[in-house]
Design a protein around this nucleic acid. Sequence first.
DNA 1: CTACATATTTCATGATGTCAAGTAACCGGG
DNA 2: CCCGGTTACTTGACATCATGAAATATGTAG
Lengths: 161, 161
Amino acid sequence: MATTSSRTQRTDPLTLEVVELIGTVVARYHEEYDAAAGKHALTGAQARVLGLLSLEPLPMRRIAQKLKCEPSNITGIIDRLEARGLVERRPDPADRRVKLAAPTEEGLTVARSLRESLNFAREPLAELSREERLSLRGLLRRMVGEDAGLLADPATPAGYD
Amino acid sequence: MATTSSRTQRTDPLTLEVVELIGTVVARYHEEYDAAAGKHALTGAQARVLGLLSLEPLPMRRIAQKLKCEPSNITGIIDRLEARGLVERRPDPADRRVKLAAPTEEGLTVARSLRESLNFAREPLAELSREERLSLRGLLRRMVGEDAGLLADPATPAGYD
DNA sequence: CTACATATTTCATGATGTCAAGTAACCGGG
DNA sequence: CCCGGTTACTTGACATCATGAAATATGTAG
């Protein structure tokens, strides 16, 4: 709570503008993401899953958790990725119920290319000096909470590739 | 990873982390948005359209432009909103081909309630002092480009039709 | 009036999402 | 060993969202 005396200052114009800006960033993020995915004839969901798997093969159930959707949904997405030869299902030696989804060679190549063509990073951030990026990092870290500064996604611990 | 000294520092770790943080913000934004929409038994797309219309009635075509999708898609979304009594189609007196989608009284109420329950603004931003929010606003403005700081949706740059 | 352009809808199709039910496998207690 | 409960994945039915092509109605230029 904040600066003003009002009890519910939900319409503080500065906060509103920041939210608005974040909305713009979110929209742009998606545009770029979908465009990058489209270049490889992938949908957003497929690209997201492939990106996840390129870090580490995962059981279907874990994928569903990361995407916050039902496991039955993942079946279809992996089906389509598998049909295109980008992903394969492997048995988990430790538990025969589990199927591990792992990228194929081609899947890894596509995932890498996807990451590179996703230039959301460079374009808009190039505008900012190193100091400004440091400042932005600090502010975003505080926004998303301390723990999230370490791993945005439980999938991506400190050492992404 | 050869981050150091390379001239094309597309994998500059600082930039990478900022991008990661933005990804987290994007994910959280969506969670909150969908949760807020879900409270009113609306999907994300329906909530977005209703929010748009609550500012101003719009022709179907314009809605499609703002959402960056095909107009035929909007027909279905408006159909569902209309079936729930949240939106109505009105003729455009100036052009009988055009149908204006406008929120009903109840639609306006829901839109307002939606905006309020979307506390993405307050929760994470409450962590930041006014000065920090000013700083964040400045950085985001530069990221998204100057003009985007003025109006919410740059989808309407100049005269379109 | 004719020809073309625009706004919306309809239809077919595919991807994504939910939920409920089914199958296979793990696991604990008898 | 068998039984009952849980877990992992798949399947099916269904709703939403998205695209693209074709149809309809209207506007507009020549």
